[in-house]
């Protein structure tokens, strides 16, 4: 799901420019957790409404709100059927163009498998080698996260001129834990005052230039420390 949204968002937002994306992962002690993904396009309402009024742009068909809704609903319904995924909610505000997805997962593997299945299904069940990668692992108090290769591949397909428009936006990645964070590898990372959440902020353009910007290894304090 995350990948699909990144792909769709990046392609669409390349035309819109000013987009705010929040990628929020909360992890419980048993490996389960909550995934929230928010896309905020409210500062580009005029542009989006004018885009939606067009039949096509740069040779690509511009979907109607009805088509976007149907497609989103289909993806959400598909996600709900995936093993280990529950409490899926999706809110789409087409007045302000704010889209929020939230779901519970039983494990990081279940979350990644669900995303893989949805992406694969949306691509006609074709084999996508990039999907074989594991981009989230949590072992021995250490979380390792990176950008899925499929998203990297898709962002590279965006026209260079269009990529420049993404500089105005922001991409925020938050990872929350059930206990305090001891340390992390990514120097761009900030830690909350309660030390249970880390955040990296960048812009979508930088992400297209360097997909490793969000890569991070986060170490939690060991029990008893």
């Amino acid at each position: 799901m995350k990948i699909r949204f990144i792909i769709l968002a990046t392609l669409f937002f390349s035309f819109v420019g000013c987009v705010e994306i929040i990628d929020d992962l909360s992890l419980n002690e048993d490996g389960s957790g909550t995934f929230r993904y928010t896309i905020n396009l409210s500062s580009s309402k005029v542009k989006i409404n004018s885009l939606l009024a067009l039949d096509s742009l740069d040779g690509k068909k511009v979907p109607t709100i009805g088509e976007i809704t149907r497609k989103s609903d289909k993806i959400i319904e598909l996600l709900k059927t995936k093993e280990g995924i529950s409490e899926v909610t999706y809110n789409a505000d087409y007045d302000n163009f704010i889209f929020k997805l939230k779901c519970e997962f039983s494990s990081l593997k279940a979350l990644q498998d669900a995303i893989r299945d949805v992406v694969k299904s949306e691509n006609g069940n074709k084999t996508i080698p990039e999907l074989e990668q594991t981009w989230l692992t949590f072992e021995s108090n250490k979380l390792v996260r990176s950008i899925p290769q499929i998203a990297v591949k898709k962002t590279k397909e965006i026209n260079i001129d269009d990529r420049a428009l993404l500089k105005k936006g922001s991409y925020t990645s938050i990872t929350r834990f059930y206990k305090e964070v001891d340390r992390f590898d990514n120097e761009s990372c900030a830690i909350s005052k309660n030390r249970k959440a880390v955040m990296i902020r960048t812009d979508p353009y930088s992400l297209t230039q360097n997909p490793n910007l969000l890569d991070n290894s986060i170490y939690l304090v060991k029990t008893g420390e």
Binding site: E20, I22, T38, N40, S42, S43, K45, V46, N96, I98, T172, I174, R176, S192, K193, N194, K196, A197, V198, M199
Partner: peptide, 18 residues
């Protein structure tokens, strides 16, 4: 430039909730 409204997310420094 024309005036419009937009939404921004504000983060709580304590928890990073927004």
């Amino acid at each position: 430039k024309v005036k419009t409204k937009k939404f921004v997310f504000e983060y709580d420094e304590e928890t990073f909730e927004y």
